[in-house]
């Protein structure tokens, strides 16, 4: 099996970490790239509230798109770092960051945990 290049390893690692962080920021900060209105198939740029008589608004796709762009950019930038610097990013962050962010995501859904 071929060895992974250090740059590919750095990109994949930073992409995963950055995506989780950016996704959380986009979710909690109301920062979707776009808003989708499934009732009318309308797409608006940025965060737009649901329109009267047009059904709900969906932000999830917009959060993913924004996080994808940001994480890709950060991953590419990290891959350009010298190997001795990039090699110091702990590999364990690939699972520690999303695990640590999970309670925050649960907290962000506080609206639903009503009894």
């Amino acid at each position: 099996m071929s060895e992974a290049s250090p740059r590919l390893r750095t990109f994949a690692l930073v992409f995963g970490i950055a995506f989780a962080l950016l996704y959380l920021i986009c979710d909690m900060g109301r920062l979707p790239l776009f808003t989708y209105h499934p009732g009318t198939d309308r797409i608006d740029f940025g965060w737009v509230p649901a329109r009267r008589d047009e059904g709900p608004a969906m932000y999830w796709y917009g959060w993913i798109a924004a996080s994808l762009i940001g994480a890709t950019a950060l991953g590419v930038l990290a891959a350009l770092l010298p190997d001795r610097v990039a090699g110091k990013i702990p590999l364990s962050l690939c699972w520690i960051v999303p695990v640590l962010l999970t309670p925050v995501i649960i907290y962000s859904l506080g609206f639903y945990w009503r009894w």
């Binding site: 099996m1 071929s2 992974a4 590919l8 390893r9 990109f11 994949a12 690692l13 992409f15 995963g16 995506f19 989780a20 996704y23 979710d27 999830w60 959060w63 993913i64 996080s67 994480a71 590999l91 690939c94 699972w95 999303p98 962010l101 999970t102 995501i105 649960i106 859904l109 609206f111 639903y112 945990w113």
Partner: peptide, 25 residues
């Protein structure tokens, strides 16, 4: 709420796939 959490967590999982694949390869 748990359905929303499912959407968030599966998205986290999706973003982990590149490093997951690389670690297994």
């Amino acid at each position: 709420g748990v359905f929303e959490l499912k959407e968030h967590l599966t998205t986290f999982g999706l973003a982990c796939l590149p490093i997951y694949w690389l670690l297994w390869k």
